[in-house]
Amino acid sequence: MMKFVSSMMIGAIFGLGIAISGMANPAKVLNFFDLFGTWDPSLAFVMGGALITTLIGYRIVFGRQNKPAYAQMFHVPERADIDRRLVLGSAGFGVGWGIAGFCPGGAIPALGLGYSQTFVFVGAMIAGIILARFANMRLQRTAIAL
Protein backbone atom coordinates (compact mmCIF):
# COMPACT_ATOMS: atom_id res chain seq x y z
CA MET A 1 0.00 0.00 0.00
CA MET A 2 2.82 2.41 0.88
CA LYS A 3 4.46 1.44 -2.39
CA PHE A 4 1.31 2.43 -4.29
CA VAL A 5 0.79 5.70 -2.38
CA SER A 6 4.44 6.76 -2.70
CA SER A 7 4.39 6.06 -6.45
CA MET A 8 1.28 8.16 -6.83
CA MET A 9 2.84 11.04 -4.88
CA ILE A 10 5.99 10.88 -7.02
CA GLY A 11 3.84 10.77 -10.15
CA ALA A 12 2.02 13.87 -8.86
CA ILE A 13 5.32 15.75 -8.40
CA PHE A 14 6.29 14.76 -11.94
CA GLY A 15 2.91 15.82 -13.36
CA LEU A 16 2.95 19.15 -11.52
CA GLY A 17 6.49 19.81 -12.78
CA ILE A 18 5.42 19.07 -16.35
CA ALA A 19 2.35 21.31 -16.09
CA ILE A 20 4.03 24.40 -14.62
CA SER A 21 7.17 24.04 -16.76
CA GLY A 22 5.23 24.31 -20.03
CA MET A 23 6.02 20.80 -21.27
CA ALA A 24 2.30 19.99 -21.35
CA ASN A 25 1.70 22.86 -23.80
CA PRO A 26 2.32 21.86 -27.45
CA ALA A 27 2.45 25.51 -28.59
CA LYS A 28 5.37 26.15 -26.22
CA VAL A 29 7.17 22.93 -27.15
CA LEU A 30 6.87 23.64 -30.88
CA ASN A 31 8.10 27.20 -30.35
CA PHE A 32 11.21 25.86 -28.62
CA PHE A 33 11.99 23.94 -31.82
CA ASP A 34 11.18 26.93 -34.04
CA LEU A 35 14.59 28.63 -33.93
CA PHE A 36 13.89 30.68 -37.05
CA GLY A 37 10.34 31.70 -36.13
CA THR A 38 8.53 32.29 -32.85
CA TRP A 39 11.36 30.87 -30.73
CA ASP A 40 10.72 30.35 -27.01
CA PRO A 41 13.83 29.07 -25.18
CA SER A 42 11.89 28.09 -22.01
CA LEU A 43 12.27 24.34 -22.55
CA ALA A 44 16.04 24.61 -22.21
CA PHE A 45 15.38 25.68 -18.62
CA VAL A 46 13.06 22.69 -18.06
CA MET A 47 15.66 20.25 -19.38
CA GLY A 48 18.47 22.01 -17.52
CA GLY A 49 16.63 22.08 -14.19
CA ALA A 50 15.52 18.44 -14.49
CA LEU A 51 18.92 17.20 -15.63
CA ILE A 52 21.01 18.96 -12.97
CA THR A 53 18.62 17.89 -10.18
CA THR A 54 18.69 14.26 -11.36
CA LEU A 55 22.45 14.26 -11.91
CA ILE A 56 23.07 15.37 -8.31
CA GLY A 57 20.19 13.36 -6.82
CA TYR A 58 21.17 10.05 -8.48
CA ARG A 59 24.71 10.44 -7.11
CA ILE A 60 23.36 10.90 -3.60
CA VAL A 61 20.96 7.93 -3.95
CA PHE A 62 23.53 5.53 -5.43
CA GLY A 63 26.15 6.74 -2.94
CA ARG A 64 24.04 6.30 0.18
CA GLN A 65 21.60 3.46 -0.56
CA ASN A 66 22.41 -0.18 -1.27
CA LYS A 67 18.88 -0.76 -2.49
CA PRO A 68 15.64 1.20 -2.98
CA ALA A 69 13.30 1.69 -0.03
CA TYR A 70 10.46 -0.47 -1.46
CA ALA A 71 12.24 -2.75 -3.94
CA GLN A 72 14.96 -5.39 -3.94
CA MET A 73 17.29 -3.66 -6.37
CA PHE A 74 17.88 -0.67 -8.62
CA HIS A 75 16.60 -1.36 -12.14
CA VAL A 76 19.03 0.51 -14.35
CA PRO A 77 19.60 -0.32 -18.04
CA GLU A 78 23.08 -1.82 -18.51
CA ARG A 79 23.39 -1.66 -22.29
CA ALA A 80 25.89 0.78 -23.78
CA ASP A 81 25.75 -0.12 -27.50
CA ILE A 82 24.20 2.38 -29.89
CA ASP A 83 22.28 0.24 -32.37
CA ARG A 84 20.14 0.99 -35.39
CA ARG A 85 16.86 0.44 -33.52
CA LEU A 86 17.80 3.08 -30.94
CA VAL A 87 18.83 5.66 -33.53
CA LEU A 88 15.94 5.09 -35.96
CA GLY A 89 13.39 4.85 -33.16
CA SER A 90 14.63 8.07 -31.57
CA ALA A 91 14.66 9.84 -34.95
CA GLY A 92 11.05 8.72 -35.43
CA PHE A 93 10.10 9.98 -31.99
CA GLY A 94 11.69 13.36 -32.77
CA VAL A 95 9.73 13.67 -36.03
CA GLY A 96 6.44 12.85 -34.26
CA TRP A 97 7.27 15.27 -31.43
CA GLY A 98 7.94 18.00 -34.00
CA ILE A 99 4.63 17.30 -35.76
CA ALA A 100 2.34 17.09 -32.71
CA GLY A 101 4.22 19.06 -30.02
CA PHE A 102 3.55 16.35 -27.43
CA CYS A 103 6.07 13.89 -26.00
CA PRO A 104 4.84 11.01 -23.78
CA GLY A 105 5.94 12.70 -20.54
CA GLY A 106 4.23 15.93 -21.57
CA ALA A 107 1.03 14.35 -22.91
CA ILE A 108 0.11 12.07 -19.97
CA PRO A 109 -0.01 14.91 -17.37
CA ALA A 110 -1.75 17.10 -19.98
CA LEU A 111 -4.66 14.61 -19.90
CA GLY A 112 -5.47 16.07 -16.47
CA LEU A 113 -6.11 19.47 -18.06
CA GLY A 114 -9.07 17.89 -19.87
CA TYR A 115 -8.60 19.09 -23.46
CA SER A 116 -9.85 16.74 -26.20
CA GLN A 117 -6.71 17.16 -28.38
CA THR A 118 -4.59 15.49 -25.70
CA PHE A 119 -6.87 12.44 -25.72
CA VAL A 120 -6.59 12.22 -29.52
CA PHE A 121 -2.79 12.32 -29.32
CA VAL A 122 -2.50 9.84 -26.42
CA GLY A 123 -4.90 7.41 -28.14
CA ALA A 124 -2.81 7.52 -31.32
CA MET A 125 0.43 7.17 -29.31
CA ILE A 126 -0.83 4.07 -27.48
CA ALA A 127 -1.97 2.62 -30.82
CA GLY A 128 1.56 3.29 -32.11
CA ILE A 129 3.14 1.47 -29.13
CA ILE A 130 0.82 -1.54 -29.62
CA LEU A 131 1.57 -1.55 -33.37
CA ALA A 132 5.33 -1.42 -32.71
CA ARG A 133 5.10 -4.20 -30.13
CA PHE A 134 3.21 -6.39 -32.62
CA ALA A 135 5.69 -5.61 -35.42
CA ASN A 136 8.55 -6.41 -33.05
CA MET A 137 7.04 -9.83 -32.23
CA ARG A 138 6.75 -10.58 -35.95
CA LEU A 139 10.34 -9.45 -36.54
CA GLN A 140 11.63 -11.68 -33.75
CA ARG A 141 9.63 -14.67 -34.99
CA THR A 142 11.05 -14.17 -38.48
CA ALA A 143 14.54 -13.93 -37.03
CA ILE A 144 14.07 -17.21 -35.13
CA ALA A 145 12.61 -18.92 -38.22
CA LEU A 146 15.65 -17.86 -40.23
Binding site: G92, G96, A100, F102, M125, I129, A132, R133
Partner: peptide
Protein backbone atom coordinates in the same frame (compact mmCIF):
# COMPACT_ATOMS: atom_id res chain seq x y z
CA UNK B 1 2.34 12.54 -34.80
CA UNK B 2 0.94 10.33 -32.02
CA UNK B 3 1.36 7.15 -34.07
CA UNK B 4 4.94 8.07 -35.01
CA UNK B 5 5.79 8.98 -31.41
CA UNK B 6 4.38 5.65 -30.18
CA UNK B 7 6.36 3.57 -32.69
CA UNK B 8 9.48 5.71 -32.20
CA UNK B 9 9.64 5.56 -28.41
CA UNK B 10 8.98 1.81 -28.47
Amino acid sequence: GGLIVGVGVY
